[in-house]
């Protein structure tokens, strides 16, 4: 039901601004965390885990057909906690307003994905690990 309501909301947003043409561009969601040794620094947050959590949230937040994941990448070594995670998506909407709504939904999902990872590892904004920020943070950009 939630998904249906979301879909309807996007449809309404799109219908409300018929003067604009279809929007279809890329969005990059970047996650940054502290990383570290997979064993020695175990317990730190993972930017890649946050990115994966976000993908699952996106499946619930975005209408089917409105997005396509074109990349999911991150980390630098099998024995290191990933300090970075990147999701690249192609968003498609009927008009600019609907497109902005999609980007807002992606941004919200990214924040929630990072928050879920931070909560799982019990860290909050301002916490430090060995002097570095302990949390995973997200940023969304269009490309």
């Amino acid at each position: 039901m939630k998904r249906l309501i979301l879909t309807l909301a996007f449809v309404v947003a799109a219908a409300g601004t018929p003067a604009f043409g279809q929007q279809s561009t890329g969005v990059r969601v970047e996650f940054q965390g502290p990383g570290g040794h997979s064993f020695g620094a175990y317990g730190r947050v993972s930017a890649l885990h946050a990115a994966a959590r976000t993908v699952i949230l996106l499946q619930k937040a975005l209408p089917a057909g409105s997005y396509q994941i074109t990349n999911l990448t991150g980390g630098n070594s099998v024995n290191a906690i990933a300090s970075d995670g990147i999701i690249e998506l192609k968003l498609t909407a009927r008009n600019a307003k609907a497109y902005d709504a999609l980007v807002a939904a992606v941004t919200k999902a990214a924040e929630e994905g990072a928050a879920a990872e931070n909560a799982f590892r019990g860290v909050k904004a301002g916490d430090l690990t060995a002097g570095a920020p302990a949390t995973v943070r997200s940023i969304v950009t269009r490309f």
Partner: peptide, 26 residues
């Protein structure tokens, strides 16, 4: 996302044998 939810003995019990995992690269 499923792996990220796993808790090891290290997460659950102080003094347990240190047990770790990570998705290092994707």
């Amino acid at each position: 996302a499923k792996i990220a939810e796993v808790k090891t003995p290290t997460d659950l019990k102080p003094g347990a044998p240190k047990t770790t995992y990570t998705v290092g690269r994707a």
